[in-house]
Every structure is written in C-alpha cells, then in structure tokens.
C-alpha cells in the first residue's frame, strides 16, 4: 500500500517535471521569438554598415566593437550652412510631435469612446440599436478609403494650407480623424454592458446623475478596458505613418515614424543606413518599453480582461 503511494508520488513528480519542462520551453521559445527582433534592432544599431552586410551575419558584438557612432550621429549638429546649429536629424522635434499627437488622439479617443460606449450601453433613445449597427458596419470599410474623404475634410477646415500651415493646424489635421474609434467604442460598450443594471439602480437611488454614474462607477469599473484602449490607441498613434505624412507640409511637423523612414535612405542609390535607422528605432522604442514596464500590471489586466463580477 505504502509502496503504491510512493510510486504514485514519484510518477506525479515526474509528470510535474515534464509538464514544467514543456511549459517553460514553450514559453522560452515564444520569448525568444518576441525578443529576437529587439535584440536584432539593438545589435544592428551597434554595427557599422560593413558589419551589417557581413555574411554570415554577426550574431554577437563585444562592447569594444560597438559602433556608438550610430547613436552619436543622431544628435549631430549641422556645422555650417544656413541650418548651422540645428540637429542633422531632428530627433527631438519628431519625438515631441509624436508625443503630442499620441497624447491628443488618446485623450480625444478616450473621451469620444467613453461617451459613445456609455450612450450605446446605458442610455435608452430611439433608434439606438440601428445607429449602433450602422456604426459597427463602418468597420467593414477599410481605413485607406477614408484617407481621401478625411483629406478633403481637413482641407475644408483650412488645416491643410500648404502655403502656411501652422503647427496647430498640423496637430489638428493629424489628430482629428483619429479622435474616434468604432472598434474601441464597441469594445468598451461590451464591457459597459457587463456591468449589472443593479449597479446603475443603486447609484440612482444613491442620488447620482447619469454622468456622475459614468464618471464615478462605470469608468473606474471598466478601467482595465479603458487602459487597454489607451495603450492600443497611443501605440497606434506612435506608429502612424501614412496620414501624418499626408497632412503635414513641413518636416518639423512630422512624426518620428516619418522621420525614420526617409532620413536614413540615400535618395540617390536608394540604400538605407540600417545602423543609424536601427539606432533611432531603438531610441523610439525605448519610451514604449518604459511605458510597458511601468504599466505592465494594468496592461496585462487589460489584456486578460478580468471581467466584472456581478
């Protein structure tokens, strides 16, 4: 009897070890898949162009081989000429624009998304479901199609005057079309719908208005979803490319994504200085990584959607 027990315990232990090995090797493999591009970015940013084209590829670099030059070049100052004293690659200008755009679109999107989701989830008005269905249906239209209409709108609003577009014009033009999101509205509405009616009734009895209920109860309760939306939206704004290039007339209004694309490609030979490009990509990625590490709890919570219990 005791022997059987020991044997069982043993096989249980073996089983556990095997399952652990499998789990961790799977997770390890996934982690490698995720990390390799980052590693490659950093590695490339530390290589000279001849190291980059080396075959077979160089997989590791000793610190003594690092070409910090790629990073330094990003902050080089033009020595002479009419642009003297200005940075060669206006990294900080691009970065500032990207941050401004991300913040504005994210705030805008959050506000419109929250209000729309609230209306569709909580308020009763005539034609609500039809309007919602129509809005959802627009998700089937590919975003590229909106570029032209958005462009015309922005032009009509006077924000795309190529002769004298001001910084605020450019900011409005870049952000306005992205201040709403059907998908996020839908996503948040579903979360709002999961909040039990009784919570609303309780709040009503406790003397809150609809708006106060939204502010004090729905938003805090749906916070994981809202944080997910904020993160996804700011990441989208961070990497937006086509639209910002379309509606900005001057280089100093552009985003880091636009800057990265063109700045390191030789207009004559069409060749790209990958070392510098990756160095600046690393610098652009760094803030995102910091944000991820700081907010990883919220992000994970948002992603795993710890639903609201009734």
């Amino acid at each position: 009897m005791a022997e059987v027990f020991v044997k069982n315990e043993k096989s249980y232990k073996v089983q556990k070890i095997i399952s652990n090995v499998l789990t961790f090797s799977f997770l390890g493999a996934i982690a490698i898949v995720v990390l390799v591009p980052f590693y490659w970015m950093i590695l490339t940013s530390l290589k000279s162009s001849t190291m980059i084209e080396s075959i077979p590829p160089i997989l590791f670099l000793k610190p003594s081989q690092w070409q910090i030059w790629n990073y330094k070049a990003l902050f080089e100052i033009v020595e002479s000429g009419p642009r003297a004293g200005q940075p060669l690659f206006p990294f900080f200008t691009y970065m500032k624009n990207t941050i401004v755009i991300s913040i504005i679109t994210t705030i805008g999107t959050s506000i419109t998304t929250i209000l729309a989701a609230f209306a569709f989830a909580r308020l009763n008005f005539k034609g609500r479901d039809i309007v919602f269905a129509i809005i959802i249906a627009t998700m089937m239209i590919p975003g590229e199609i909106f570029i032209l209409t958005n462009f015309l709108t922005i032009n009509k609003l006077g924000w795309y005057d190529i002769m004298n577009q001001s910084y605020s014009d450019a900011i409005f033009a870049m952000t306005l079309p992205f201040m709403t999101s059907v998908f996020y509205t839908f996503y948040l509405r579903q979360t709002f719908k999961q909040i039990p009616n009784e919570l609303y009734y309780a709040a009503k009895v406790d003397g809150t208005t609809d708006f106060k209920y939204l502010l004090k109860v729905m938003i805090p309760v749906a916070m994981p979803t809202i944080i997910t939306i904020i993160i996804l939206n700011s990441m989208g704004a961070w990497s937006a490319y086509i639209w910002p290039a379309m509606v900005t007339t001057k280089d100093q209004f552009r985003l880091v994504s636009n800057g990265l694309r063109g700045a390191f490609t030789d207009s004559g030979s069409g060749r790209t200085d990958y070392g510098q490009q990756m160095a600046s990509a690393a610098l652009v990625t760094a803030p995102l990584l910091v944000v991820f590490f700081v907010f990883r709890k919220q992000i994970m919570r948002g992603v795993s959607r710890s639903g609201i219990k009734g």
Binding site: E198, Y201, A202, K216, V217, P220, I308, K309, G310
Partner: peptide
C-alpha cells in the same frame, strides 16, 4: 439588490 450591487472598485 439580490446581487449586492456593490461598487467593485
């Protein structure tokens, strides 16, 4: 209420 309806946050 039956389901308490406490504010979970």
């Amino acid at each position: 209420f039956q389901n308490y309806a406490l504010y979970p946050h």
